[in-house]
Design a protein around this nucleic acid. Structure first.
Lengths: 187, 187
DNA sequence: TATAACATGTAACAAGTTACATGATTTC
DNA sequence: GAAATCATGTAACTTGTTACATGTTATA
């Protein structure tokens, strides 16, 4: 029921590992502070919390202040803490065999004529450069310890990607990558 | 109906841009030659081809040899060729704001005690190293032009990630990243 | 004789997103 | 008085995956 490789579970467990919180609170925090590390939507977080409660990873208690809507306050359980540790080790130790978006397009780049390819890649490089600059000037994260580390990693990867694409542009200019039919032979 | 940012559409269009082919043929080719660049399953490819036909990107014709099952042979249309070009430019020019898997775990790395973190990261680094070596020794791709370029990019990104993780291990050893509560403050 | 390959597709299921319902309170 | 905030959750929709149905031919 709970996917032990779902990083969003890890995120929610991590948020609860320091403070008991209600769903709305976590969602606001994620939206305002962690937009850079997750794309999880609010409805998904609510659903996940419900499933995590059913799995015994978190406990829940209803609380009300005045006439406001009831808050469902979640607290991490010992099982949740244990799973968080397990998931951390599991995710950290196994390298993600992820497919970088854009790889299919890179594969077919020779299907474009050289000028069009160069133009497209120059736009990409410019946008990436801007993005790197923006990330570099981001102040250290005030609240969540570790976000800076994740951002640092992203910067590293982005810089490497950027350099690689610059190299491809150079090769396109030098005629090393020439437009041609995409398939040499299909068995 | 057809997502103009779906790289799997691009993949299928690319395959058809050189040769008319039937679905089974494309699926076999993808499974045997392109397992490194896509995770698309066969049923998904069949469904996509059907939708692409409805969208006019490909034409289809039934063919039969002897008593074998009928093959539905797809050919790219002028609209398909035009879309392929558009998609290539679009995907190449806009940098993918992708979230590298593992970032959440990296963010919470300080929730582990230092020894456990180092141990996990050493396993990761060893596995990544092996993977890099394997990719480096992969022979140039015999059939699909451009796969080598995509693999080269992956290698670049993997090497950068690898180096970064080695640096984190060093910092953990040097006591620069210390275990501590994950949240400093939640507003 | 059994099972793998050929070739397509459907049905059932799982999971995520969008949009909305609900109803009080605070802010403009 | 209108709109945004607070707080949770549901319903409808889309999409992908797994497993299977189908029936012939080649292989072990």
């Amino acid at each position: 029921m709970i996917d032990r490789h779902d990083e969003r579970v890890l995120l929610l467990l991590g948020l609860l590992s320091t403070q008991s919180q209600h769903g709305y609170q976590m969602n606001e925090f994620i939206e305002h502070n962690l937009g850079r590390v997750t794309l999880m939507k609010k409805a998904t977080a609510y659903a996940l919390l419900t499933r995590m409660e059913a799995a015994g990873l978190v406990g829940a208690e209803d609380a009300r202040e005045g006439n406001r809507p009831t808050r469902r306050v979640y607290s991490i359980t010992p099982e949740g803490t244990a799973l968080m540790r397990e998931m951390l080790v599991a995710v950290l130790q196994e390298p993600s065999q992820s497919l970088p978006p854009g790889d299919i397009a890179v594969m077919y780049i020779a299907a474009l004529d050289t000028d069009a390819a160069i133009e497209a890649l120059e736009r990409r490089v410019a946008a990436m450069d801007e993005h790197v600059t923006e990330l570099e000037s981001t102040p250290l994260h005030p609240t969540v310890v570790g976000v800076d580390l994740a951002i640092e990693r992203r910067l590293t990867l982005m810089r490497a990607d950027l350099d690689w694409f610059r190299g491809v542009i150079d090769r396109l200019r030098g005629g090393e990558v020439v437009p041609r039919a995409v398939l040499a032979a299909a068995e």
